[in-house]
Nucleic acid binder design. Structure first.
Lengths: 248, 248
DNA sequence: GAGTGGTCTAGACCACTCG
DNA sequence: GAGTGGTCTAGACCACTCT
């Protein structure tokens, strides 16, 4: 029932509610706030920090949205009992692997312009034949291949300048962010199929081995498709793991 | 640049911000608010409805969280250009299929108590040997099998009474909701593997055919595991499709 | 400089849960 | 009945974007 030490810095440019949310989250992560324990009521918390109740509520709400806290009217706000891992986020595989500590290796298999064909043109919303940049990469971890990743990028989104260098030092999403793209949402399809001979050779599997497939179109805030990916993962070495929150 | 007709009913028990959010969402869905069009500024909107600005903001914020609106400081709030489909939600396959209009058929293959073994016990957080309810179902659409679904449920969560009837009339999540379970989050793993002989026979595939696998543990608000599912989907007939929103 | 959203305040009343 | 979160108001000042 220990109290987390909270404080706010009114001279900081960081919003007050965000400072509080960060500290609460850190307290939960570190175990200072135990799972299942009740926070004090909102008014007392706000008073203790010299904040108004709406500001305190905003801090709490952001953690409720993340699934770290649960509110029940008439009862109070408590830390969730079960550790909720991050909900599924818009991120590239590279980011996923980096965050979990596995050092991904990248081999850039190909980088070239090509005219967009049916499926690619449709996904990107471009006229058939528009030139786009195609990127083929092989991802591996601990010395063994994990995935063959193919992306198509509109030239007006990324240009061609130093794409190679950017991809060799970071992920595709980092490249897009660095190019000023503000990503908004993505549409994904995850399926499975058997490997053909060429894919099997690339991924060190046998022909006919099950592969996980993932297709994704990413959109920016203006609704422009900024990336189309069609990726193959070795089912024997990779699976997608993620959390969902109940609709609230 | 048409204006959507908005109004609020102050005698309704439905919160004002929610009434506004519903009407805005309906206007977007129906096309009355065009993709990419700017909403008026928050203060004018609030005045027009006789609401305070925070209430109007709350309505807008809920749609931003759904990915339907985009706010930019100094610019305004606009309807997203691209249709964002529902982000991935906590729902059962049955619910998924119903919502997209495909009538799923269900065959209840088995319903029995059994002691929880290693993997099941671990996922549900129960001592090995605790009796749980095991449900095996075969899902099909348009006459052909799609998935073999296996769920393990703690007896204290569902009891045993009229489980069969409930599962024959609705999905597993509907059953849980009807039992008063308030679901909070779930942890999922999606992978792939080759079908063995028995699975192939059940799903009308050939042995060695690629299958999509999905394992899920669902937790309620108290952090109790209320369901463990391990499901197999025919990769030739089914894939997971979902939207993601950028972290924001 | 004008207009927008982002943040914040100091109150208020209500609905719900629990003892 | 006491305590909690849910909703709502009527302001305020700031940071950012655009022209």
């Amino acid at each position: 029932m220990d109290r987390a030490r909270l404080s706010v810095d009114r001279n900081s440019p960081v919003p007050l509610y965000f400072q509080v949310a960060q500290q609460l989250e850190a307290a939960i992560d570190s175990g200072k706030l135990e799972h299942g324990s009740l926070l004090g009521n909102e008014i007392d918390l706000a008073d203790a920090l010299g904040l108004s109740r709406p500001t305190m509520r905003q801090a709490i709400q952001s953690l409720v949205d993340k699934g770290l806290l649960v509110r029940r009217r008439g009862v109070g706000t408590q830390v969730v009992h079960t550790r909720v891992r991050r909900p599924l986020e818009l991120s590239s595989l590279y980011d996923d692997l980096s965050e979990t500590g596995q050092r991904p290796g990248t081999a850039l298999l190909g980088l070239e312009r090509e005219p967009a064909e049916g499926r690619v043109a449709e996904a990107l919303g471009l006229p058939v034949g528009t030139e786009v940049l195609r990127v083929d990469r092989l991802r591996s971890a601990q010395g063994a291949p994990i995935a063959r990743m193919r992306n198509h990028l509109p030239l007006e989104v990324v240009g061609e300048e130093s794409v190679r260098e950017a991809l060799e030092s970071g992920g595709l999403y980092a490249l897009l962010r660095a190019r000023g793209v503000r990503m908004h949402s993505a549409r994904q399809t995850v399926g499975a199929r058997a490997a053909d001979a060429a894919e099997a050779a690339q991924l060190a599997e046998e022909e006919g081995a099950p592969l996980l497939t993932m297709e994704r179109v990413t959109f920016d805030e203006r609704g422009r498709a900024v990336e189309f990916g069609s990726h193959l993962y070795r089912a024997s070495r990779y699976s997608f793991e993620f959390s969902l929150l109940a609709r609230g």
